[in-house]
Amino acid sequence: MSSSQRLSRAYKNAKKVMFDDHSKFILFSDCHRGDNSFADEFANNRNIYFHALNYYYNEGFDYCELGDGDELWENMNFESIFEAHKNIYQLLRKFHLEKRLHMIWGNHDMVYKDKAYVEKNLSSYFEPIDNTDKELFEDITYTEAIILKHAHTQQEIFLTHGHQADWWNYTFWRLGRFLVRVLWKPLQVWGIADPTSPAKNYKELIKMERRIKKWILKNNLLITIVGHTHRPRFPEPGDIPLFNDGSCVHPRSITGIEIENGQISLIKWHIDTTTDGTLKVVRVLLEGPEKLSDYKPKP
């Protein structure tokens, strides 16, 4: 199956979420939440991420995670990740209880395509203090893709991880997971990158983006937002509408995409220093906002 066919299948089977100009979404991907070991790239940014997530919860945003939220290639199970970042999952649970949580699986958490696995591992957790099982993400569903559909204009925004355009990480993800666990995780501690990852291999990144752009052109310039490459993208109106929200494992910062008031923006959260030496987490607008309606499909 070609990358175009995989993307088309994901679009056909996507979960549909209606929205309008009053809706608010924050899109993050590639958190790669790990076990807080030396190989956990998310650990350096966890306080930034938690602060940003808390902001979006209080401001009434829906949270969309575009895959690779949990690092289940390097780590054998979800339990160790949950224990390392328990406060984050408890905050995500609050989104879930209010039906404001929309989760997509990527290649590093592709096991979440199995509903039985999700139910067994994510529905509840054991709390040693109370010696009881407590609910976590009961009845949660992970999907390969989401379509945000505007209630009035019928404009669609296609959200997916993007690894459909990366044949190795989609078709051979189990082999990739094996290699990461036995080879690249130990080497990562010493700063040696996995050459099969498009986030670490520029040539693979360009190839993947080219395949998705080709698919967008075939599908009437559908707005498409992905992750996977870790490289933020924000095209101008009139360009091929391929967006990328970046990742949450940039050095000292996280990036994401906001959709609010019928507009789209690329943002960054990072730690800044005030003149009196105080450290604080701040939000920075990188690109936009641009009106979604300006990204018009071909007539």
Rank of each mutant, 00 (worst) to 15 (best):
R33S: 14
T278E: 00
D276A: 00
F78E: 01
T273E: 08
E41W: 07
L148I: 12
D245E: 14
K99Q: 15
I225Q: 09
A43M: 07
F178M: 00
D109S: 07
R233K: 15
K280A: 04
K149N: 12
G191P: 00
A193M: 05
I146K: 07
N13D: 14
E71H: 11
E209L: 00
K214Q: 14
T255V: 09
I212K: 03
G238T: 12
E258H: 05
L242H: 13
L122G: 02
L101E: 08
E59C: 07
M208A: 01
L27Q: 12
L217R: 14
D68W: 03
F243V: 10
W269C: 05
T278L: 00
W105G: 01
H85T: 11
I259Q: 07
A10N: 06
K149E: 15
D245N: 15
K113P: 01
F234C: 03
R211G: 03
G67T: 09
E209H: 14
I267S: 11
I240N: 13
L27P: 12
Y55P: 01
R46N: 14
A199I: 00
F25M: 09
Q164P: 04
G288L: 12
S265P: 08
W105T: 00
H108I: 09
P251R: 12
N54L: 14
E71K: 05
R93F: 09
H102P: 08
W184K: 01
N45S: 09
R252P: 02
N219D: 04
Q263S: 14
R231T: 06
K134T: 07
Y142E: 02
Q154N: 14
H102C: 05
S37T: 15
C64A: 13
A84S: 15
D21K: 14
W167I: 12
K296W: 06
S4L: 11
P235K: 10
K134Q: 14
I140T: 12
F95D: 10
F234G: 09
E74L: 06
Y11H: 08
E258W: 08
Y63Q: 13
W184I: 03
R283V: 06
N58V: 03
C31Q: 13
T171I: 05
F61T: 08
M103E: 02
S293F: 07
I271P: 02
Y117N: 03
H32A: 12
H85Y: 10
A14I: 06
I26F: 12
S247T: 07
P299W: 06
A193W: 11
E236K: 15
D166Y: 01
Y202C: 03
T273R: 03
E258A: 08
K15S: 03
Q164E: 15
I157M: 11
Q164R: 02
W190R: 04
N107G: 10
L159N: 09
W184P: 10
H250R: 08
Y117G: 00
G246M: 11
K99Y: 14
M1S: 13
F172T: 07
F50M: 13
D20N: 15
I271A: 10
L179G: 06
W73R: 06
E79A: 11
E156Y: 06
A10K: 03
Q164Y: 11
M110Q: 01
K291R: 14
N219M: 03
